[in-house]
Amino acid sequence: MSSPNFIDYVKFCSRSGHGGAGCLHFHREKFIQKGGPDGGDGGRGGHIILRGNAQLWTLLHLKYRKHVIATNGNPGEEQDRTGADGKDEILEVPLGTVARQAETGEVICEINEDGQEVIITPGGRGGKGNAYFATSTRQAPQFAQPGEPGVEEWIILELKLLADVGLVGFPNAGKSTLLSVVSAAKPKIGDYPFTTLTPNLGVVQYRDDRSFVMADIPGIIEGAAEGRGLGIRFLRHIERNSLLLFLIPADAKDIQKEYEILLNELRKYNPELLDKKRILAISKSDMLDDELRTEMQREVPTELPSVFISSITTQGIQQLKDLIWKNLHD
């Protein structure tokens, strides 16, 4: 998943098709001058539909589709023939996609299963032909129903990554390095803040051919919930993770304080995130000797499991995997 190709937000104008008009017609043939009404119904307008596709990881293919337009339904015809329905526009999206109204922010649906289909903008219904309105007292209705108009609205699609473990930490805490060590993912790594500008996914191999998925989320800074740094653009990805792995480097000035800042940003963004299981890993611990490690152990928050790791020397990596697996399947 390369940076330029990962798109997790698109906005487009969605316009469904108009319903076809009902037909106003009376049966006519040789020797039958006044046949009954036989006008057929109009076809419905095309829907705008989202379909889940497990093979997609990004919304890149929809980035430049600013208008999605379905076709109109055809009008009804004589001899009680119903007009053809408008062609539906089906947009395939990755699992974890949320559709919402651009104006109100109201969530329309969430796509979480492969092949799941949801109509986000319904087409207009076709109008009834005059044959529909015929009764014993009104045998020759001189009217038919027009089709319903389609709907035009702006839709926002947001992708929330589906992963077992989400990495949470400040920029340059070693999240990308850890992901590159425990999986085959190749995120961009550098010794400066905001190296990671897009989320990265990696499959972590565990014992006996078991595995779990880890997501590297771009670094959080204080004030991210209000839009600072990369803001809330990537905080939403954490909502889909089963377990949160907090990563704080061993050279941090105050481990407890950094943990509280990260926790507070999650709380301000969505208090429900605090209900998720949490693990703390102290990264870059290869720079610590035994005395420093013992001293730093006193600073580590005691309310959650913790482990000292080094992605360079792989120290504590297997212990971290065991801790993650235990918490995922406890």
Rank of each mutant, 00 (worst) to 15 (best):
I221Y: 11
G86Y: 06
Q318W: 03
R233N: 12
N200K: 14
L328T: 08
Q318F: 01
D216Y: 05
E258P: 04
R65T: 04
I324K: 09
D275T: 11
R267A: 13
F143N: 11
E106Q: 10
G40M: 06
E291K: 15
K253M: 15
G123F: 02
A163E: 05
P271F: 09
R28S: 15
D216A: 09
I119W: 03
L292F: 07
N200W: 10
M287V: 14
P193K: 14
A215P: 01
Q297D: 10
Q33L: 15
Q79D: 14
N241W: 00
E258Q: 13
G52C: 02
P37V: 13
G202N: 06
L56D: 04
D254E: 09
G190Q: 09
S311Q: 06
A225V: 12
A131M: 12
D114S: 05
R240S: 13
F170W: 07
I156M: 06
E148H: 11
F26Q: 12
L95D: 08
K326R: 15
V151N: 09
I111M: 03
Q145P: 06
K160Q: 15
H18R: 11
E153N: 11
I156C: 12
P193G: 09
G43K: 04
N241R: 01
N5T: 04
A185V: 03
G42I: 00
S183V: 03
D88T: 00
V151H: 08
G126T: 01
E222G: 05
E295L: 09
K257R: 14
V68T: 09
D114R: 04
A281M: 08
D114N: 12
F133Q: 07
V165G: 04
Y206G: 12
D41T: 02
K257Q: 14
V213E: 13
E295D: 06
L161I: 07
G42T: 07
G231K: 05
N74H: 07
R278C: 13
W57C: 02
P171S: 13
L235S: 06
I189C: 10
Y269I: 10
D208G: 05
A21H: 05
A225M: 10
Y269R: 10
S242G: 10
L159A: 07
V182Y: 07
G73M: 06
Q319W: 00
K277W: 04
G229I: 08
L328I: 13
T121N: 05
A70F: 06
L161M: 12
S311E: 02
D208N: 12
G105H: 05
N172Q: 10
R228H: 05
D209Q: 08
E103V: 10
E106M: 07
Y132K: 02
K87Y: 03
L273M: 15
I248E: 11
L167E: 07
P218T: 02
G231H: 00
P301E: 04
E103L: 13
K188W: 02
G20I: 01
L24R: 08
V10L: 08
P149W: 01
H18A: 01
N241K: 03
N327D: 12
K66Y: 14
S16E: 08
K175E: 12
D290F: 04
E117K: 11
R44D: 15
S14H: 03
A144H: 08
G129T: 04
E299I: 00
S183G: 04
L292Y: 08
E158N: 09
Y206P: 01
R44Q: 14
T97H: 01
E117G: 00
V213R: 13
K175R: 06
R240Y: 06
K30R: 14
V213T: 15
R28Y: 10
A84N: 09
R65L: 14
